[in-house]
């Protein structure tokens, strides 16, 4: 564990807390893509299958349980909560996310480190995580205005990916640890998807104005 990875894990955790805070305090999920949340739930469930086969550390186990349960809780809230679900922007959230699932499943079957159930699921979850933010970014772009908490949610998610890249660079030099290239390539693609969002986020922060994305 190094400072970059810890910062990455913490910004990831903060992003989820910000999202839960928004849903809890405003009783609204407007601006939040259910499709992205469903993809994250699939990502965590397929990646953390090792919860039942390998023990790494208490920290690792707790974080995995938190990620799986919070992502399922968020999906439940948007779909089933009697107040929250009314604010869901269904007509803006039309990304065909199951196509991403299909494409990532095919890619994982073709490109993986080892042909075992767990390893193919792991590769699938890495590929899917890289593109899971797309429905959310499309929704934000369509709605134009982004409320503060939603903006911060996406910002922290992007920050998490950026810290993970720094973590891999650090591990390479300090531990001679080679991060798997599947993770590296997917991680770079994932972080790049946030570049545009980051640009507008910093402009709005610098001007102290509301975050607006160009149509």
């Amino acid at each position: 564990m190094n400072v970059f990875r810890f910062a990455g894990d913490m910004t990831h955790l903060i992003s989820i807390l910000v999202l839960l805070l928004k849903i809890y305090t405003t009783k609204s999920c407007s601006g939040i893509s259910l499709k992205t949340q469903e993809l994250y739930a699939v990502v965590f469930v397929t990646r953390y299958l090792d919860l039942v086969t390998d023990f790494i550390s208490v920290y690792n186990t707790v974080m995995k349980v938190v990620f799986i349960s919070s992502s399922l809780a968020i999906v439940w809230c948007i779909r089933r909560h009697k107040v929250v679900r009314r604010s869901y922007d269904k007509e803006l959230d039309t990304f065909r996310h199951w196509l991403l699932v299909g494409a990532c499943a095919v890619l994982a079957l073709v490109v993986h480190e080892k042909f075992s159930f767990q390893e193919v699921c792991w590769a699938f979850s890495i590929y899917l995580e890289a593109v899971a933010i797309l429905p959310q970014l499309v929704l934000l772009q369509r709605s134009g205005n982004v409320d503060n908490l939603t903006g911060q949610y996406v910002f922290f998610l992007g920050a998490y990916r950026a810290f993970y890249i720094l973590n891999w660079i650090y591990r390479y030099y300090s531990e001679q640890h080679f991060t798997r290239w599947i993770s590296c390539v997917s991680g770079i693609v994932q972080t790049a998807l946030y570049a545009d969002f980051f640009y507008y986020y910093f402009i709005s922060w610098k001007n102290n104005s509301k975050l607006q994305l160009p149509a």
């Binding site: 990875r5 894990d9 990831h12 990646r47 090792d50 390998d54 790494i56 690792n60 974080m63 995995k64 990620f67 080892k114 390893e119 792991w122 993970y164 973590n167 991060t179 993770s183």
Partner: peptide, 10 residues
């Protein structure tokens, strides 16, 4: 061998 297969990152 087993060490290499463990995914220690989240």
């Amino acid at each position: 061998e087993k060490e290499d297969e463990i995914h220690d990152e989240l």
